[in-house]
């Protein structure tokens, strides 16, 4: 079963008279439970594609379907609702709400979803333990290392069992050892909880962790291979 389906997605940015073609017709199917790397040099269109799959940005043409929901003509409110229930984001950096503790950051999404307090607290603690942050519940983001912050972000993204987690260069700001550890943790979560991960990267080491590697160049798919990490 395909959890994400992109059909001929295009996107062109306009800045005054300048036109930049970010995506020139991308078609892509991703199966439930996948652990997919979107790889390509800087400026190739990875962020744009992830944002469009996540409903943060709209495609100019083509179609995007996430777990049976067609995003193409959804209103802002419907897209917000979809992100809230089905999609987790992890960005390169500044993922966390600075005034909330690690635990509260994870609780926050569940609060928006209307999960009852007691359950919220239990699930937030459990997931933080799962990503290896036991005992750091009450730390504010500023009191956590970069790797720890990314772990909180992953925990927050997966805590409510979304259809997909979209991670845009999640290791780009980490040293290679911390980056590898984060990726290994994401891999574990992918296997244990069968969460679908799509992450972008231009780092060879990160690509090696993927079980499917989609290469993108100048806004077009260049290669697509299944692999055994």
């Amino acid at each position: 079963m395909n959890i994400v389906e992109c059909v001929n997605v295009t996107k062109t940015y306009r800045q005054g008279k300048m036109e930049v073609r970010a995506l020139g017709g991308v078609s892509l199917r991703i199966k439930k439970g996948g652990f997919v790397a979107l790889a390509g040099p800087s400026g190739s269109g990875k962020t744009t594609l992830l944002n469009i799959i996540g409903g943060l940005d709209a495609a100019d043409s083509g179609s995007v379907i996430v777990e049976g929901n067609v995003l193409d003509n959804m209103s802002q409110t419907e897209l917000a609702q979809l992100r809230l229930r089905k999609i987790g984001f992890v960005f390169q950096s500044y993922n966390l709400i600075p005034v909330l503790s690690a635990l509260e950051n994870v609780e926050f999404v569940m609060l928006l979803q209307g999960v009852p307090t007691k359950e919220r607290l239990d699930r937030a603690r459990t997931i933080l333990d799962d990503v290896g942050l036991e005992g750091l519940y009450d730390r504010r983001p500023a009191e956590l290392s970069g790797g720890q912050q990314q772990r909180v972000a992953v925990a927050r993204a997966i805590v409510s069992d979304p259809a997909i987690v979209l991670a845009d260069e999640p290791t780009a700001n980490l040293d290679s050892k911390t980056g590898r550890e984060l990726l290994e943790m994401m891999g574990e979560m992918n296997e244990q909880k069968s969460v679908t991960f799509i992450f972008s990267t231009h780092d060879k080491m990160v690509m090696d962790h993927a079980r499917r590697l989609v290469l993108i160049r100048d806004g077009l798919l260049a290669d697509d291979q299944d692999r055994d990490p």
């Binding site: 943060l56 917000a80 609702q81 229930r85 999609i87 500044y94 709400i97 600075p98 926050f108 928006l112």
Partner: peptide, 16 residues
């Protein structure tokens, strides 16, 4: 501004 982008990515509706 970035934080409000984050809020939106988390699925917060404008009213929230």
């Amino acid at each position: 501004i970035r934080e409000f982008g984050l809020f939106k990515s988390l699925g917060m509706k404008p009213w929230w």
